[in-house]
Amino acid sequence: MGVQNRVALVTGSGSGLGETTVMMLAQNGAKVVVNDVDQAKVDKVVKKIKSAGGEALGVAADISKKDQVQDLVQKIVKQFGTVDILVNNAGIARDKGLLKITEEDWDIVLDVNLKGPFLLSQTVVPYMKERKFGRIVNISSRAYLGWPTQANYASSKGGLVSFSRTLALELAKHQITVNCIAPGLIQTPLYDALPDNIKENLMKSQPTKTIGKPEDIGYGVLFFADDEADYVTGQTIFICGGKSVLSSLSV
């Protein structure tokens, strides 16, 4: 039932949506793995989970590097035996107009946001196949529908949707599901730091006139990661207050 006793890895869970998600998984009885590039962030979140009575392992690793991903998964397998739930959450943005995007801006965003989930999925799927159980949840973004100054970011997040759909079809026979969450506007430190007039405009364009919270994304992850979510695969759900509806692509 639920995610009880499942081993769940959330990448980039040293901050933001990942941090909230990994804590919600732990609260629901999963054995969680906190990963981030930043060791200090990892330690902070692991400590929080443990002091709340949860079971957590922290591993600092750059998920865009194959050897570090392999090492990360080895450490998890050594401690917990397998990976049941993989949440590909780590992500970065380098927003710029097309002509200003450097090759480095392009590469780093694609490496973290798209190649990272590829490397991780490839490394954990053999364990999932063996155990005939797996839940992969990829955190894309509503921006995959297209957004000015996000040529690199939107491409990486669009790629993640296509990647999820293809993997879902390949793995359907192995009781492994692959789904995608595309968050819209979520209240994170980045949002709080915006000037008030910009915040007001953003809020006005929301059908709900509200802004999401990291818990809204955690709630979606828990839905897809659940033992009982075994007939839902290849899907992309926007958690965006309905803003996606204004785009023609979002069904």
């Binding site: 509200t210 999401g212 919270k213 007939y231 290849g234 926007f238």
Partner: peptide, 24 residues
């Protein structure tokens, strides 16, 4: 109650079959 920020969505419960259609 927790689903207050999920709105206007169409979520297939179909074992992945929707992926064979180009708008699914």
């Amino acid at each position: 109650d927790e689903a207050g920020y999920i709105n206007g969505q169409t979520l297939y419960v179909c074992g992945g079959k929707s992926l064979f259609a180009n708008i699914g």
